[in-house]
Nucleic acid binder design. Sequence first.
DNA 1: CCACTGTCTTGACATCTGTCGAAACAGACA
DNA 2: TGTCTGTTTCGACAGATGTCAAGACAGTGG
Lengths: 125, 125
Amino acid sequence: MSKQAASLTLTDVTAEAFCCQPLAQHRVPAETAAVLAPAFKALGDPVRLQLMSMIASADNGEACVCDLTPAFNLSGPTISHHLKSLREAGLVDSERRGTWVYYRARPAVLRQLAALLTVEPVTVS
Amino acid sequence: MSKQAASLTLTDVTAEAFCCQPLAQHRVPAETAAVLAPAFKALGDPVRLQLMSMIASADNGEACVCDLTPAFNLSGPTISHHLKSLREAGLVDSERRGTWVYYRARPAVLRQLAALLTVEPVTVS
DNA sequence: CCACTGTCTTGACATCTGTCGAAACAGACA
DNA sequence: TGTCTGTTTCGACAGATGTCAAGACAGTGG
């Protein structure tokens, strides 16, 4: 069978191909909702949505905190707090290299969320 | 002409084609983030994510509150509250027909969110 | 008009969230 | 070692959120 062997720790968004049937085609089961809702929640703040975009669209695929922080009128700790939210939601990874910390997007998770929201092009009658 | 007349209240997600460049291709501007974040926020609760799915995937495109409520171990007012959140986020519409109230998804908004999260298939080197 | 059913609003409550300043931690570099 | 810079954690606080019970509102049908 597939990756469903035993009671796998399915409760991890970062597992590749965790889901997703489009939300508009099949009812999202409670378990799936519990796993994916936190990711949407993380994107549900304007600051985090921008942070996510800045990270995902960065030239080399990663962004330094030192580049992210000045883009907002917010304190360092606050930005750090938001980045932690994104990290805990599985949307980004962080890595320290010397003095600076770099954040990198996890495209697989973004793809899952996008797949979930996918709607058929247009209802042609 | 289109709906863009003058300084249109662009701060409305429900405006067709309000956006969206994929988040991973261009930085999401603050204004766009402010408009779209509430939609993600609305999907950021497991109950609402399931409600959204139940509505969007309903047979005739609409779901009655009387069908939604029994699917959860939550009081009527609580479900109503969540449905209000979805409505205010522009994700669903509601209509009363006689005794029952029906909710219907707004596919255009879902499409915008999906477009925003779209990531290129796989980074082929 | 009155009662009954379905849905929403109100008021209350505990919890969570976004924000900051202060302090702690991690490396670089003298 | 000590100091400086960049980042995170801690502690605190106001405001938002999820939940419920009680009551208000909307339609149906006597």
